[in-house]
Design a binder for these strands. Structure first.
Lengths: 175, 175
DNA sequence: GACACTGGCTAACACCGTTAGCCACCCTGG
DNA sequence: CCAGGGTGGCTAACGGTGTTAGCCAGTGTC
């Protein structure tokens, strides 16, 4: 990215995100992005090195928003796990395509702002009390969210109870 | 699919699976499949309606193998959850690209053999004792597997303990 | 022996990400 | 005031994708 903070670059990223969130990953096309800006696809390369870099930019934005949401949801709570899970689920449902872009592929750690990954993970670490329980809970919420997004669960009322059961099982032993 | 059991169709599906498992999803190309068979891509359409149908065939094969593995792993055990989880994780690690193809998208339920979905789910249902715990455990194993496949966890020794913690938390109350 | 079916083929289309090369505009330095 | 260079567009093109149309050789059947 020539200059990730340049106005035109931020404009491009904004359009890309809009396209992704509204129409899904198959709409996230260099030609579609360019068209939405009134230019042609090759001109994008004057601002952005390529599509992967654009996806990284969207991923970074997503993690920053998610981290903020998780922090806000768990701040000051003395039973933070349910609050964290609710915020996590809400984020994924509000931005399903972005969520999948963020998690589909290996994390582009080299291009992430320093500390962002740890900052995103911190609320869950605090909410579970131990790193291995945090990973187990991370697996649980990630898997549940994806199973919901891919329509894997029947639409009876049971899925809400499954969330509750997982939270209860993974909550740190009370006092 | 003209006739899913026709020898040529089964040959095509076998080649497709080989390509997917050995070289990943970007190698799963009509032209690559055809080349591996010594023909040209358009000729595939004499046997198969299109790429999506081929992916469905791979998905069905995957679920049949997974169901058999889960049944074998949990049969007759009186503590089946750890056995199920081990079999699930082993399947995903043995066939990562196939596993992702099977779970990335909505289940093509209309094209699944009758009862296959239920058969795949049954061992976990038995291992957890209740439908909502089964869904929670499904979320846990699915999420953990994907986080491992996408390299989300640091490569310290902690991930094994996270699996154990999740299993312990989700196991039905002992006798 | 005529006929149809089977399963190959080439050519082509619309789309994808990306590169090369061109050019109009504008800002700056002399 | 004008020259030079950078900025940010453009068209044309390449190799890749899934897919369709249309052709044709071989084979098996009545």
């Amino acid at each position: 990215m020539a200059d990730p903070a340049s106005p035109r670059v931020r404009e491009i990223v904004a359009v890309a995100r809009d396209l992704l969130e509204r129409e899904g990953p198959e709409a996230l096309t260099m030609r579609r992005i360019a068209a939405a800006l009134g230019i042609r696809a090759p001109s994008l390369y004057k601002h952005v090195p390529g599509k992967p870099a654009l996806e990284v930019a969207l991923t970074v934005a997503g993690f920053e928003e998610a981290a903020a949401a998780f922090e806000a949801a768990t701040a000051g709570s003395d039973d933070p796990l349910p609050a964290f899970v609710a915020a996590y689920r809400a984020f994924a449902r509000a931005h399903p395509h972005l969520y999948r872009l963020m998690t589909d592929r290996p994390l582009p750690r080299a291009d992430l702002p320093a500390g962002l990954e740890a900052r995103t993970a911190a609320p869950l670490l605090r909410a579970t009390g131990s790193p291995e329980r945090a990973r187990a809970a991370f697996g649980f919420v990630h898997g549940m969210v994806l199973l919901e997004l891919t329509g894997r669960f029947p639409d009876d009322g049971l899925t809400g109870r499954a969330w509750a059961a997982g939270i209860a099982a993974l909550r740190p032993a009370p006092r």
